[in-house]
Design a protein around this nucleic acid. Sequence first.
RNA 1: GGUCCCUUCGUCUAUCGGUUAGGACACAUGGUUUUCAUCCAUGAAAGAGGGGUUCGAUUCCCCUAGGGACCGCCA
Length: 464
Amino acid sequence: MKIVATRFAPSPTGPLHIGGVRTALFNWLYSKNKGGKFYLRIEDTDKDRSKEEFKNQIINSLKWIGINYEDNEYIQSDKINDHINVANELLKKGLAYKCYCSSDEIEEQKKRAKQKKKPYIYNRKWRDKEEADAPKGIDPTIRFKSKVEGKTILKDLVQGNIEIENNTIEDFIILRADGSPTYNLSASVDDHLMGMTHIIRGDDHKINTFKQIQIYDAMNWEVPSFAHIPLIHTIDGKKLSKRDNASTLDDYSKIGIMPNALRNYLLRLGWSYKDKEIFDLNESIKYFNLEGIGKSPSKLDISRIYSINEHYIKNIDENDLFNFLKNYCETYKETINDLAQKKIRNSLHFLKNKAKTLEDIYKNSKFLINDKVQIENDDKKLLDETAVKIIKLFCDEINKLSDFTRETLEPIINNLIKNNNTNFKGIGQPLRICLTGSKFGPGIYDILCSLGKEEVSKRLSQIR
RNA sequence: GGUCCCUUCGUCUAUCGGUUAGGACACAUGGUUUUCAUCCAUGAAAGAGGGGUUCGAUUCCCCUAGGGACCGCCA
C-alpha cells in the first residue's frame, strides 16, 4: 500500500485567502489521518504575476494556523526543465504537436465564437498538418492531442462519478510559444514526480482534471485519486474574492481570532462529523475523512467564527490563552511589560469570561495597565452629584478596610445601596466608569479586587 | 451560449426509504449575575416546485426553476 501523499499548490499571485487555507487544511488533515505526507508547492510559473511577498504571506498563513509541511516548500519554477522534457517526450511519441496559430488568430476565433454565442474550442488546425506547411516567423506552441472520441469518467471522491464527452476537451497548450510550460503540464508532472496519491482541491479545477488525466495516461503514469471540494462563498452568495474584507487570515488574526478557533471553523465549513462542532487538533486528525465533505458551496459566517473563538477563549488552557494574547498584543496593539503581563495573567480567569476575541480581552484588561482613566463625555453625565457622593462614601469605607476582598466589600456596597435609596446599578456603574473608563467590562468585584485597595482609592480620589 | 456540478431552518449541517426532520450559530422572550458582552431556560425557524418508483419518500429516478464553477499562450 502506497503511503498517502497530498499537497497544497497555491500560486503566489495574490494573498492566500480563507478558501485556500481550507483546501490546505483538508489536504493536511487527510494526510495526517492516513499517516501520510503533506507538501506545499508554490506554483510560480507565471513569472509576471508571481511575487515574493505573496509567497511569504502563504507560508506565514499556513504557519499561523498550524499547518506544517514536509521539507521546504517546493518551488515549481525550479523544476521547469522536467516539465519541458515531458512535453518533448509527448511530442516525440506523437501525443502532442506544434501549433503555429498566432495569438491574434486564436483571439479572432474566440471573438467570433462569442459573437455567435458558440462555445470556443480550438479547432485542432495543426493537429494533423505537416510541419513543412508552417509559416515563417511564428514560434509554435505545443498542444496536447486530446481524445476526440468517447467519454471519460472521473471518479471523484467527493462529487461521485462525473462523465464528460472527450471532444469537449480541446487540444490544450502545454508549452507556450516562449517554451515555458503551462499549468496543466507542470501540475501533472510535479504531482507525479512528488508521488501524490490524492489531489484534494477546489471545485474550480474539475475541468482541468480531465486534461491532467490524459497527460498521466499518455505518459503511462499511475493516476492519483481526485477530490474536488465545493468553493466558499461570501454571505451574499458570491464567489469569495481577494477584495472581500475578511478573506485573508490576517483579517481574522488582527481582530483577535485565534488560529485554533479558525482552524476549527474552517474544518466544519463544508465538512461534518455527526453533530460534533468542536474538534481539537487531535480530534480533527482522528475524524477527518473525505466522506464528510458536502457537495454544495458554503457561505462564510462571521458570527460563527466569533462564537467558536469565544468557545476556545473560555475553554483552552489559560497559559495557552495567555500566550495567544501576548502574541496578539505584540503584533497588533502594544508590547506589554512584565508587570502588566503579570497583572493580566492573574486576572485572565475573569477577563476571558466576557470576551469573544483576543481584542476583547485586551480591551477589558486595559484598566489594569493604564492608571490614567479616560472618561468619555457621554459617560461623565452618569457621574452626577449623587454618584459622586456615593463614591466619596465608598472611599471612606474602604479606607477602614484591612482586608480588601469580595467578602469585605460586599457589605459595604449593600449598605450604600440601602442608605442612599439606590440599586446596584446606581453605584456599580459610576464605580466602573471611574475605575475603568468604560460602561462595559468585568464584574465590579473582579475590578475592585484585581486593582487592590491602594489603586482603587487612588483612582477614585481623582474624581471627588 | 456550451460543458459540468449543486439545492434540508437566515447560516453551517445531521438524516445513509419509515424520525414529532436533530444539533450548532444567529435571532426572540424570560431568568440568574442586584451593572454588562458571561451563564441558564424557553421559543420561532427548513426538505425549491412538479411528476414518477414504492405499502411508505427529505432520502432513488426524471423534468422545471434557482444558484455555482469552468470555457486563458493564469494557476
